[in-house]
Nucleic acid binder design. Structure first.
Lengths: 229, 229
DNA sequence: TTAACATTCAACTAATAAATTGAATATTAT
DNA sequence: ATAATATTCAATTTATTAGTTGAATGTTAA
């Protein structure tokens, strides 16, 4: 195999990975799978895309090696091949922000502008959390919280927030997080909490980043105490 | 603009970036442009792809915001929009290595296997270089060396190496580098030097990484002394 | 065994992409 | 002005892709 052939083969394979990423739905699927494994129908629902279409996108991702699948009864459960994949998706987002004016505009006007205060950094959160100065709220769906969440975080899915908000004390600052910087759940939560005069900031990092950084995550469902009306 | 629309727009734009990367020739173009700006004809020659095709690939990259172009006389000079783009290309390579068995095999058998000793790390090189324990050899073409090279490196393009090798002292260890981990120039150089009983290792990082890490690079052509027969 | 279910497969349509060719454009040199 | 040059544009062919529909597969529950 000549030097030239090796180079061409390598870059062609890299291109195959990029090709697998080259569709909005597939990127959204990877963002979801970064939170934990899921079956096809659930993904289809969360995405708002037909089951057949979702299945085919998942198969393309699998063919590119970015996800793997296993059977569980009559369901097929897909999972990310590696946390590196979600880092790659974030990297694409970062480059898109840097290189595409249209993206930069959306991010600044629609996402960043909601943040009256700058997002909390991972380091800062560690400090605040250690001296119990903040309440960490995970606003993702219960399944994703159960798969992995930040140590000490409580789970209040966005859809339940209005109902359960009253349990949150107003004295302590609240830090919300969701699936990552391009997930909008935390922004919606922040807006809602601010309207009710909570002090709330956002954590940009999320579980996949946290785990990739070698920091510990907790697993298991939210407490029954919180889940009761 | 609804939350859902924002999310879909964002991911669609991210997908456009991935789409721009989804071709072997375009990834190879980005690797070349990461070394410094270049005109279309030169890129076409280095790539071994027709001028028209090269031009069209460059335009797609430009449309995605990954490169920019300026005129210089009758030439059109393309350059990377940001060093982040070359980091993204490396990230894709890394994920491809982790996720695609075929890539992992090629990298291990064809690239890594050539390294009898592990590559030099950036930190190690800094130490070795500070006490003049090594000679750093940049085996890229002269234009790329001139655009930016590691401090203290001498330029011996691979094609000139056989002729100029004798100038290298055998007492000191040699560290070679080229365009990055997926460029094969340094490997060829290493093989050639080892056949002539030089002690030689490889630096995996390259100029774009070096610069992105905030380390200083030098510019300017190689010395006349070295260029003379 | 049969029915119900989750997922995949196969076939189809419409849209998009890659490479090639020759013409068109813009800049410099004569 | 005119010729030469570097690049882009336009048109073409061929191949690939996304989404839809309905049938096929494989698993569990009745």
């Amino acid at each position: 195999m000549s030097t030239r052939e090796i180079r061409q083969t390598l870059f062609a394979q890299f291109a195959a990975v990029a090709d697998a990423l080259a569709h909005g739905s597939r990127l959204a699927l990877l963002e979801l799978l970064a939170q934990g494994e899921r079956d096809v129908e659930t993904l289809s629902g969360l995405l708002g895309v037909s089951v057949a279409s979702t299945s085919q996108h998942l198969q393309r991702l699998k063919h590119a090696g970015l996800v793997s699948a296993r059977r569980d009864g009559r369901r097929r459960i897909y999972r990310l091949a590696s946390d590196e994949v979600s880092a790659l998706v974030l990297n694409i987002g970062k480059v898109a922000e840097a290189c595409l004016a249209s993206v930069e505009k959306i991010v600044n006007q629609q996402l960043r502008a909601q943040d009256e205060w700058p997002p909390v950094s991972t380091d800062e959160l560690a400090t605040l959390s250690a001296r119990r100065a903040v309440i960490i709220v995970d606003v993702r769906p219960a399944e994703e919280y159960a798969a992995a969440h930040l140590p000490g975080a409580v789970n209040i899915p966005l859809e339940a927030l209005r109902r359960k908000m009253s349990r949150l004390p107003r004295e302590r600052e609240i830090v919300v997080y969701c699936r990552g910087p391009y997930c909008l759940l935390a922004l919606d939560a922040m807006r809602m909490l601010r309207r009710h005069h909570y002090r709330v900031r956002r954590l940009e990092e999320s579980v996949p980043d946290w785990r990739r950084a070698g920091l510990p995550v907790e697993t298991g469902p939210g407490s029954v105490r919180h889940a009761r009306a």
